[in-house]
Structure formats: C-alpha cells, structure tokens
Amino acid sequence: MNEEKTQIAEIKVQIEALKGKLSSSKKKSIETSGLNLSIMIISDLAGGLLVGAGIGYMLYALFDAHLVVLALFVLFGGFAGLLNVYKSISHLEKEKHQ
C-alpha cells in the first residue's frame, strides 16, 4: 500500500517536471527566424496597401469619386499596413517577455 503511494508520488513529481519543461519550450517565439519575420512584415504591409487601394478603386470606379479619394485610401492602406506590422511585432515582443 505504502509502495503504491510512493510510486504515485514519484509519478506526480515526474509529471510536474515534464509540465515545467513543456511550458518553457512553448514560450519560444514562432516567428523569430529572419525569413519568417521578413515575410510577416511584407505580407502585413502588402495586405494593408491592397485593401486600401481596393476600397479606393471601388469608390472611384463605382461611385465616380474624385481621384483624390483613391490616393487617400492608398495612403490609409499604407498606414493600416504599418499598424498591422506594429501590432504583430508588439505581439511577438509580448510573447518573448512572457
């Protein structure tokens, strides 16, 4: 009976040690490699620009808006892309410090 209890206690200690190992390995960042980071930044910037330009073009082509509206939305798209890069990098930094 006592032997069983000590065995269970040993297993519990082993499980806790493994959990500790798992959580420390989980904290490694997923996007730390240079290629991944560059692809992330390019895709965030391009995504913002594409959507901004798309909305601007739709307003220009469908609603006969002034060309300035198209230029303004391209600009907004660029800023939105930068905002996305900032959000992604802050998320990575937060993940690193956790």
């Binding site: 390019i42 895709s43 995504g47 913002g48 901004g52 907004f76 939105a80 959000k87």
Partner: peptide, 25 residues
C-alpha cells in the same frame, strides 16, 4: 475621420496578410 478608416482597413487586411504569408512560403 483618420483613425476609423485606418482601423477598418487594418481589420479587413488581416486575412490578406494571413493568406499572403502562407502562399508566399
């Protein structure tokens, strides 16, 4: 007037950047 369009575009562009990332890789 500046923040709302930028935030909307930022929200809508997330699927684009998600897509571009996987497709490029």
């Amino acid at each position: 007037p500046i923040m709302i369009p930028i935030e909307i575009i930022s929200f809508l562009s997330k699927p684009f950047s998600l897509t571009l990332r996987l497709v490029m890789n």
